[in-house]
Amino acid sequence: MQYLTLQNIGFATGFILILIGIWGFLTQKNIIKIIISFALFDTGTHLLLVAVAYIKDRTAPIIDSSVNSANAVNEIVDPVPHALALTAIVIGLGITALMLTFTLKLFKHKKSLDITKYKDLKW
């Protein structure tokens, strides 16, 4: 029961999402499904980053009437991983959009979403 902390739940969810993502892009044949697996992998890493930053019984890194500015060090969670996760989410959208565009381009050439039909670089 002592393992059932908020932080451990976040770790478990994040790691399992990453594993599902890896499993997805290794086993799936459909290109859209592969991109979906990458998106799941992304979400897993964001969960991990935020779970690492969490400290028990503390509040969000915003200093207002409920957080004393002089004692902020002992009342807030770590703001640095939050900033990293913010960056990662926006770049994840960019990567997803690029991959989907290349999918459109590939589909125009071969009329198929099956990754096993694309053998141009195989030897």
Binding site: L6, G10, I32, I35, I36, A39, D42, T43, H46, V50, A51, A53, Y54, R58, T59, A60, P61, I62, I76, V77, H82, A85, L86, I89, V90, G92, L93, T96, A97, L100
Partner: peptide, 22 residues
């Protein structure tokens, strides 16, 4: 996990815009 900034970004970008692009 006390990260409202990340929550807003994920809700607007991760679950809104990327679903629409898909």
């Amino acid at each position: 996990y006390a990260a409202p900034d990340v929550a807003m970004t994920e809700a607007a970008i991760g679950s809104g815009l990327s679903t629409i692009i898909f």
